[in-house]
Nucleic acid binder design. Structure first.
Lengths: 207, 207
DNA sequence: CTATGTGAATTTATTCACAGCA
DNA sequence: TGCTGTGAATAAATTCACATAG
């Protein structure tokens, strides 16, 4: 199976596996079985083994997976084995939360710049990041920032995406609830925190 | 197809369709075709038609779907035709963003209460919501709040979930990066904003 | 004896192509 | 003619069961 294309669903799960593996590695464990990991993450052991099988064999039958090796391998597949600098656009409530969120670092992300249009915010410093005017977005290429995070109001999302693309980013995480059009070479993942809540009632028992 | 079980993937897409439909209804349009909606949302027209077909026929061949009727129907399927009161636990950076987020209202959500453990925050008022001590969670049942949102640090997530379940909620939106165990009758959706960013580099062109 | 890795079976989801209605 | 609704075909993902390795 080593030379297979990795299914999208597997790619979606890998960051979750990585999170679990890194957590368990803090617990001074050396190896982990697919069952251990499944129990910890609320997943299925066979699903985990199948997912891992798409990108190689590195488990030891009878023992499990070497944690360090496993973490390294997942990072490599996800291209998280290097640090990615990201630019945040929009330092409102959501943007500020993104800037302060501790969960990005384990995946090797570094939010290296923040932008806003509000003159009252520009120049302020949050977590060692000085907020810049959005016109400075054009400096991203020079600063080697290839990743953009959109946290602006809905109506400004499209033009923000255009500016990011113009500045040379090739990946965008879009928190605004709208579809944005970009050239094919740019990957966009849209994440509206409300849409996930919106399917919760469907699955809740009546009452 | 009217009496089919609705696929999970369809349920996942319905909130996005609803968002589009509600937006287009603001534009004073009366009807919309699957192609219109697809263009607006960056989706496929046949996928949209197929998804709608799982829960009834209400389009007009040659014309499209009546927007008002469509919105009502999607809301009904998702059980969003009534207002859902939600309790937010954890008013840190992310929690504050959730409290201020304008996107919940279109789905009929009302964040009706907020809780924290920090004495400095308790009693403060944000957006007409007075932050309460988490011990007050036990009053949720009396207040008819059936939905919980967890925005506490990772290490407090499990006990928060337990408290919410004890308080009678049957749906939880979990923003913390960990698996939480709940009784079968409670539905949990976990949403870690970092895991979505973590699969972006995989899809980005090298460089 | 335990846990991996994977073909095969099954289930689920997507895509197509077109009949049929306004 | 334009657009819906849906069976049928295809593709993708999940689940199983077990041969195999340590």
């Amino acid at each position: 199976m080593r030379y297979h294309k990795i299914p999208d669903e597997t790619v979606r799960r890998l960051p979750i596996y990585l999170r679990g593996v890194l957590f368990l590695s803090e617990q001074e464990q050396q190896s982990v079985s697919s069952q251990n990991l499944a129990d910890f993450l609320g997943a299925n052991s066979w699903q985990i083994r199948k997912d891992f099988s798409y990108f190689g064999e590195f488990g030891t039958p009878g023992v499990g997976y070497n944690i360090e090796k496993l973490a390294k391998q997942i990072k490599k597949i996800l291209k998280l084995d290097v640090t990615h600098k990201a630019a945040l656009v929009g330092v409102g409530n959501l943007g500020s939360a993104v800037l302060a969120y501790p969960g990005f670092s384990i995946y090797g992300f570094d939010i290296a710049a923040a932008f806003d249009t509000n003159p009252k915010k520009i120049g302020k410093k949050i977590k060692n990041i000085t907020i810049e005017d959005v016109s400075n977005l054009r400096t991203l290429k020079k600063r080697n920032i290839k990743l953009g995070i959109i946290a602006v109001p809905r109506d400004a999302a499209k033009q923000t995406a255009d500016a990011l693309v113009k500045a040379g980013v090739n990946g965008i995480l879009n928190f605004s609830p709208c579809y944005i059009t970009v050239p094919k070479k740019v990957k966009v993942i849209t994440l509206d925190i409300a849409t996930d809540l919106a399917r919760l009632p469907y699955y809740m028992p009546a009452g």
